[in-house]
Design a protein around this nucleic acid. Structure first.
Length: 434
DNA sequence: TACAATGATTGTGT
DNA sequence: ACACAATCATTGTA
């Protein structure tokens, strides 16, 4: 407004000084001769300018009519050239005030995040990559959780779709508005001088306005993604019980390694693969299992029996097969001497026999490990059938003999060093994770 | 709906 | 880095 007023005053001044404007310019058509004095002319020009300035306040029809009248006015070219001249002079200040927009760091951050999340990236690959990255970030790290994250990905792609449609809408609105304004300016350029630079500047302003809206969109999209991530990838919220099969496999391992239920990294991986869960899930499971078992052994007795019996059958087969394969006459009844003792000398001997008889140390170790794991089960079953007193009572037949006085497995492993050879190099089911 | 079971997280100790 | 213990939050069930 300040600029406009200034221009108006300047215009009046120039018109006066240069005598380039002649005659009155009131809407009733002016008289053709140079009859007016200075004051009259000034008054006329003032009227015209006032009309121009107030044109926006009038109704559309009215304004259109006035515009047309002004356009047809014989003084129009003269007035136009004066306006051009003034504009030329004042244009510098406008141009000087204009600055090239620097890249907004916040916008860049949002862009990067959206790209990383696969919202603004390429269509398909981005999403899964983001899901995988998110999975890795959440501590999973395995590729097995793709099924788990399908829901997450579905939601993510929903967000992505909304984001893109909104973005498109904004872009469309921006373009529409820009062309509208440009048309308007072009139209107005017939009545007032508008340089291409000015149009450009106006377009820039519009774009900036729209990009700020776009930034809001990006921000809210980022927020939505973050919420989604916390909802879906915080597994505590989205806990799924493992499949029956998986639980069975884990329990089988647990109860067949009751003396030392600490699967090695390799064993964990193996179990994870078998159960279609992650290694950390296996670790969690064993952590929970150990603690819960230890806390309430009585409660797990039945389960223990079940799995022990289950694996005992396998053990018998495995032992028989191993014995047959090795054509040895080793005893097939592993704990004939087991009277509830913690140490299982036979199992150790068996391993030793296997290894000494078998030239292939790796194979020997494997057989040994298998045998050892089955021996745990066998011992358990035998103890059970042999009648056990309460598990918590000191010297019971089936007691957590593998647990030390402190209730820890680790210390108990020391006296049962005879079983440690089963975890020799190359042992697949080695429990020596420490 | 209350309760148990269960997978995951957090804090602590080694 | 790992294990343990406590705890949380969800799921399954009677």
């Amino acid at each position: 407004m300040d600029e406009q007023t200034r221009m108006m005053q300047t215009l009046a001044g120039v018109a006066m000084a240069g005598h380039s404007v002649q005659g009155g310019m009131t809407l009733p058509p002016p008289h053709g001769h140079d009859g007016g004095d200075g004051d009259g002319r000034k008054q006329d020009i003032g009227d015209i300018l006032h009309q121009i300035m107030t044109i926006t306040d009038q109704s559309l029809d009215e304004a259109q009519a006035k515009k047309h009248a002004l356009n047809c006015h014989r003084m129009k070219p003269a007035l136009f050239s004066v306006l051009c001249e003034i504009k030329e002079k004042t244009g510098l200040s406008i141009r000087g005030a204009q600055e090239e927009d620097p890249p907004d760091p916040q916008l860049m951050r949002l862009d990067n995040m959206l790209l990383a999340e696969g919202v603004s990236g390429p269509e398909k690959g981005g999403g899964s990559a983001a899901a995988a990255a998110a999975a890795a970030a959440s501590g999973g790290g395995s590729s097995d959780n793709s099924i788990e994250h399908s829901d997450y990905r579905a939601k993510l792609s929903q967000i992505r779709q909304i984001y893109h449609t909104e973005l498109e809408k904004y872009e469309q609105a921006c373009n529409e508005f820009t062309t509208h304004v440009m048309n308007l300016l072009r139209e107005q350029s017939r009545t007032r001088p508008i340089s291409p630079k000015e149009i450009e500047r106006m377009v820039g302003i519009i774009h900036r306005k729209f990009s700020s809206i776009q930034m809001q969109l990006k921000q809210s999209t980022c927020e939505a993604v973050m919420i989604l991530r916390s909802r879906f990838l915080d597994a505590r919220r989205k806990r799924r019980n493992f499949s029956k099969q998986a639980t069975e496999i884990l329990n089988e391992y647990f109860y067949s390694h009751l003396s030392n239920p600490y699967p090695s990294e390799e064993a964990k991986e193996e179990l994870a693969k078998k159960c279609s869960i992650t290694v950390s899930q296996v670790s969690n499971w064993f952590g929970n299992k150990r603690i819960r078992y230890k806390k309430n052994i009585g409660k797990f007795q039945e389960e223990a029996n079940l799995y022990a019996a289950k694996t005992a059958v396998n053990a018998a087969h495995a032992v028989a097969a191993a014995v047959q394969n090795n054509q040895t006459s080793s005893p097939t009844t592993p704990n004939s001497g087991s009277s509830g003792s913690f140490n299982l000398p036979n199992s150790g001997d068996m391993y030793m026999n296997m290894q000494s008889l078998n030239g292939d140390s790796y194979q020997g170790a494997q057989v040994g490990a298998n045998v050892q794991s089955q021996v745990d089960s066998l011992r358990h079953v035998i103890n059970q059938t042999g009648g056990y007193s309460d598990a918590l009572g000191g010297n019971s037949l089936y007691s957590p003999h593998h647990l030390n006085a402190n209730g820890g497995w680790h210390e108990a492993a020391t006296p049962s060093s005879v079983t440690s050879p089963t975890e020799g190099p190359g042992s697949v089911n080695s429990d020596t994770s420490n």
